[in-house]
Design a protein around this nucleic acid. Structure first.
Lengths: 114, 114
DNA sequence: AGGACTGTAAGATGCTCATCGAACACTAAG
DNA sequence: CTTAGTGTTCGATGAGCATCTTACAGTCCT
């Protein structure tokens, strides 16, 4: 049977929030974190669906990482898909830009020192 | 002696941070708070130097309010000046826009329900 | 000088959240 | 089936922050 992009690899399919349903406060809160900023920046320079959750160079454990991705999903910033044992990611650039124009650009334009 | 706009009414002159010296993280963190969002929004529709700190309709005490303004100053969002016993405020719209284009617009365009 | 008003500073409290460790669920490969 | 790899969930811990109360420091008015 075809199994790629099937519905539900791990336990349940990841819960996503449409950027249109995200409040400004939620969006800003999601972005106001050093680890999540780094995740977004790394995602931004990677092709869609090429980065698994564990492939990011962040100074936190797996549990915290999973939590951060949950926050990013809830803010409509990231989409996830199960691919075999891995969960691959995609930055929802266009959709998020439509809801919050310029916000992502702001984050990605700044130097890494920020 | 002239006393208007003199240097130091209360105890010391308020400490300001230039928006150019503000990191993205600091800016986002400052804006990721319901009370501060409300302050910014009220300030945005008020003429410069017309609003004293106590003139805002926020559901917190004086002490917390003072703290919030301190955060806003530190993020380069608000400028303060002593005017008699009051400390009047001004939104640093142009300067902040130059550092973070579109960020303030985003906050001010959204509905109050956000 | 005295009193009303405005904002700041200091200390205490409570809550939210970021983090970790360990256990669990699912997939893929041997 | 067993093992290795990946990510989630749960419970606990700790830090940071928003808030309050109280005390203080100015300014203005009488």
């Amino acid at each position: 049977m075809s199994k790629q992009a099937a519905g539900g690899s791990h336990r349940v399919a990841p819960v996503h929030t449409d950027p249109e349903d995200v409040s400004v406060l939620t969006a800003l809160s999601a972005l106001a974190d050093p680890v999540r900023i780094q995740l977004i920046r790394e995602l931004a320079v990677s092709a869609d669906w090429t980065r698994s959750c564990g492939s990011f160079d962040v100074p936190v454990g797996k549990a915290a990482l999973s939590h951060h991705f949950s926050v990013l999903r809830g803010a409509g910033l990231v989409e996830q898909r199960d691919q075999g044992p891995k969960r691959v990611n995609r930055l929802r650039r266009e959709e998020f830009d439509a809801r919050f124009p310029g916000l992502l650009d702001l984050l990605l334009r700044s130097d890494g020192a920020d």
